[in-house]
Nucleic acid binder design. Structure first.
Length: 414
DNA sequence: TCTGGGGTCCTAGGACCC
DNA sequence: TCTGGGGTCCTAGGACCC
C-alpha cells in the first residue's frame, strides 16, 4: 500500500507583516512593509503591487505609492513564532523547524490520534488562527520537497494535500521556480530553453540538463521527478558557520574604515562563538565592490579562533589580500566575516594559557590576555547589555540600513 | 539618490598522500 | 623509465533559501 501524505509543511503567511497587522488591526487590509531602507517583509496587499522582500524601500514606494512603512516589533516576531511552533508540536514530536516561521512535521504516528493529514492540517491552521491570530498555510504530501511545494501553492492562508497517486498531475503545470533550489538564475537558464513548468522539466532529458545546469540540480530535479526524496524530518543540526556582514553604500576602503567595520564585525562574530562555546579554524571574508561583484578570501588555521582581536587581525589581512588582487576597484559596498570548521570549545579550555602561533602586535594583548579581555567584556554585556562596552560600537551605525534588533533576530537560534 | 543580514550547499582545481 | 587512481583537505566562486 502506498504511504499517505504524512509530511506537512507549515508556513506562516507574510510573517513579519502579519504580526504588525495583528498588533495594530488598523493595518489589516493595507499595503504595508516592514523596514525602511530595505523591505524586510511585505503584506499580501503590498505584494499585489509587486513589492517583494529585499527590495529597496525606494523601489517599493515607486511600485506602490500607498505603501505604509512600519517599524518592526522584532522581539514579538520571535515570541509569536515560538508560540506557533509550540502548537505545531502538539500534533507530533517529529518537527523540523527550518526558519523562524516554517517547519516540517511528520504525522505518520499521529493519524490514529488526530485523523488524516488533511484533518491535522485543518486543525493546526484553526488553532494558530484562533489562539495566536496569524494566518498559516499548510502543504501535505509524501515527501518534504512535495509538501513544501504544496504549501506554496496553498498560500495565502490555505491547505493543499497532494494525493500520492496524483503527484505528477499536481506538479506538471506548476512553474519550475517552485522547485526548491531553482532560483532566478536557473529559472532564466531554463526559460531560455523553453522550459517553464515542472512537467516540461521532468520530461527533458536529464543529460542535456546537466550539460548546462550542473549535476547537483540535475539530481535534485531527478529525485523530485522520480519521487525518491527520502530525506526524513529530523531534528535541527547545529550551525556550521557563524558570520556577520555590513553593507556600506559606497565607501573608500581606508585603514580607518576597514579597522572600524572589521573590528565591529569580528566583535559580533567572536562574541557569538564564545556564547555558544564554539571556535572555528577557517576564517573567511567577503568584499563586495561597487556594482555587486564580490570576492572572498579564506584561511584555515591549525588552531580554532574565538578571540575578538585574533579574528580582527586575520580578517584585516584577508581583506587586504582581496583588495590587492583588485587594484582597479576603488570603492567597496560590503564587508563580511564568517568563521567555519567549528569545534566545541568549552570555557575551561579557553582558560588555558597560550597558543604559540598567536600573532603578536606591539601594544595589543596577546594569548591569555586576549581571552581575559574578551571574557570581561562578555561578562559586562551579559549584565548590562551589548552597548555597555565594546569595540567601535558606533562604527556601523552611520552605515546601518537595518536596525540592530533585526540582526539580533536573524542570529537567534531557531 | 538601488539593491539587508544570516545561513547552506555545490563545484572545481590544486596540493598532498598512499 | 613520460606518468595511474582514489581520497581528503583547502581555497574561491556562485546559486540559493528565509
Amino acid at each position: 500500500m502506498e504511504p499517505g501524505p504524512n509530511i506537512l509543511h507549515a508556513d506562516l503567511d507574510a510573517f513579519y507583516a502579519s504580526v504588525e497587522q495583528l498588533l495594530d488591526p488598523s493595518l489589516l487590509g493595507r499595503a504595508i512593509a516592514v523596514g525602511g531602507g530595505v523591505v524586510l517583509a511585505a503584506s499580501y496587499e503590498a505584494r499585489a503591487h509587486g513589492v517583494r522582500g529585499g527590495m529597496s524601500g525606494w523601489r517599493a514606494k515607486q511600485l506602490c505609492p500607498n505603501l505604509l512603512f512600519v517599524g518592526g516589533h522584532f522581539s514579538e516576531y520571535q515570541r509569536l513564532a515560538d508560540e506557533v511552533m509550540t502548537i505545531v508540536g502538539d500534533f507530533t514530536p517529529l518537527v523540523q523547524r527550518i526558519s523562524i516561521d516554517e517547519a516540517f512535521l511528520d504525522v505518520s504516528g499521529s493519524t490514529h490520534l488526530f485523523g488524516s493529514p488533511h484533518t491535522i492540517g485543518t486543525e493546526l491552521r484553526r488553532r494558530v488562527r484562533d489562539e495566536i491570530g496569524l494566518p498559516l498555510s499548510v502543504g501535505a504530501a509524501r515527501t518534504k520537497h512535495l509538501a513544501k511545494i504544496a504549501s506554496q501553492v496553498a498560500k495565502p492562508n490555505g491547505l493543499v494535500v497532494v494525493d500520492p497517486a496524483r503527484e505528477r498531475e499536481f506538479l506538471d503545470p506548476l512553474p519550475v521556480g517552485l522547485v526548491w533550489g531553482i532560483g532566478p538564475v536557473t529559472q532564466q537558464r531554463l526559460s531560455d530553453r523553453g522550459i517553464y513548468t515542472i512537467g516540461q522539466l521532468a520530461d527533458s532529458p536529464s543529460d542535456s540538463l546537466e550539460h548546462f545546469l550542473g549535476r547537483a540540480l540535475g539530481s535534485k530535479v531527478g529525485a523530485l521527478a522520480a519521487n525518491v526524496d527520502h530525506r526524513r524530518v529530523q531534528a535541527n543540526a547545529r550551525a556550521g558557520s557563524v558570520g556577520a556582514q555590513s553593507a556600506l553604500g559606497r565607501a573608500f576602503p581606508t585603514d580607518e574604515l576597514l579597522g572600524a567595520v572589521l573590528g565591529h564585525l569580528a566583535d559580533r562574530v567572536a562574541g557569538r562563538l564564545r556564547a555558544k562555546q564554539r571556535a572555528g579554524r577557517t576564517v573567511s571574508v567577503r568584499v563586495r565592490f561597487a556594482g555587486m561583484r564580490s570576492v572572498t578570501r579564506s584561511i584555515t588555521r591549525a588552531e580554532p579562533v574565538s578571540a575578538t582581536l585574533t579574528l580582527t587581525e586575520t580578517a584585516e589581512e584577508l581583506v587586504q589580500r582581496a583588495l590587492a588582487a583588485h587594484p582597479d576597484q576603488h570603492t567597496i559596498s560590503l564587508l563580511a566575516i564568517s568563521v567555519s570548521n567549528l569545534v566545541d570549545q568549552p570555557v575551561l579550555q579557553m582558560e588555558l594559557p597560550i597558543l604559540p602561533d598567536e600573532p603578536v602586535r606591539a601594544g595589543s594583548p596577546t594569548g591569555s590576555a586576549r581571552w581575559a579581555v574578551d571574557h570581561s567584556i562578555d561578562a559586562v554585556r551579559r549584565k548590562f547589555g551589548r552597548s555597555a562596552v565594546g569595540y567601535a560600537a558606533v562604527a556601523l551605525s552611520k552605515h546601518a540600513s537595518v536596525p540592530e534588533e533585526f540582526r539580533e533576530l536573524a542570529e537567534h537560534e531557531l
